[in-house]
Design a protein around this nucleic acid. Structure first.
Ligand SMILES: [Mn+2]
Ligand SMILES: [Mn+2]
Ligand SMILES: [Zn+2]
Ligand SMILES: [Zn+2]
Lengths: 148, 148
DNA sequence: AATGATAATGAAAACCATTTCCAATAAGAA
DNA sequence: TTCTTATTGGAAATGGTTTTCATTATCATT
């Protein structure tokens, strides 16, 4: 699937420049399936572009979250973690988190009831509490095979 | 429903002392339905017992989380927030969060149906990923009536 | 009640992820 | 080019949380 990544348009539309640091950060995020922290992204980008600073990484991450290109998570280890938002490439998924070692597993094998019930709840809550619901997060916590 | 609160036993069993600062903190948490931050708890406790320090509040909250008496949440406003865990008094619930103003609503609608489906998912995931799942969290994000 | 062992506490200092400041640079428009 | 504004990086500041350490409270044992 060649051609410019889907986020080029977002930058233009919003009036932001797709600079080299920003491309490098997006590159790192699109090349991994892990949930990277700001520092991990910085270290990765820094290898190829030593001039890019940690401050720019933080600023860019904030911008990307604001543009809806990436999502920010807190898995309880004291730092924020990021991943590309749901798109053609990346399917909507939920998380399985090990409380001991911090391992995070993405799962997309939803059983039908899961999707169905979440949709229903979303509709009911929207009406009852007069909310405009944009998204949801479902996390399961426990011990992974190595930790239990 | 008089008699000692249900957490007295937990302290004894685990070998911890139910001291005055700890009782004051538990008192504050059981008297509110809000999701308080450490500082808010400190201020509340401080009014009745000025000798209690912020450090003790943090330490006690960590202990209470470890004992499973309270739960720690991150709603994205830069500080952790706490509430009593599910019990006789407090029903299991999920959260509705306003992305703009930070308002958090506890909801229990469809909780039976939810619980049933989540239990089923838990069983499937436990087996597939060989996890021992202890609990889960479901958050819906959007804009509240005042913010949308 | 006095003693001793250990748990709990509070104030100050340290920690550390993130944000803010600010001067320098890059990018695009004219 | 020249002007205007967006973007950047390093240093310093911020702020919630944790650590340190000397003191105090609690409880079991004399
Ligand atoms: Mn994920
Ligand atoms: Mn709640
Ligand atoms: Zn693990
Ligand atoms: Zn709101």
């Amino acid at each position: 699937m060649p051609g410019p990544p889907w986020w080029y348009g977002r930058f233009q539309d919003a009036g932001y420049r797709l600079t080299l640091p920003r491309q490098a950060i997006l590159g790192t995020l699109s090349r991994t399936s892990k949930h990277l922290s700001a520092e991990e992204i910085y270290l990765s980008v820094h290898r190829a572009y030593p001039a890019v600073g940690l401050t720019t990484v933080y600023r860019t991450l904030e911008l990307l979250v604001r543009l809806g290109i990436i999502s920010k998570f807190d898995f309880g280890d004291g730092r924020s973690r990021y991943e590309l938002t749901t798109s053609r490439q990346r399917k909507h998924h939920h998380h399985l988190i090990c409380s001991r070692c911090g391992r995070v597993i993405d799962y997309t094998d939803f059983i039908d009831e899961e999707t169905e019930v979440l949709g229903k709840i979303e509709r009911v809550l929207s009406q009852k509490y007069n909310f405009r619901i944009n998204n949801h997060r479902l996390h399961f916590y426990g011990l992974c095979d190595k930790c239990k």
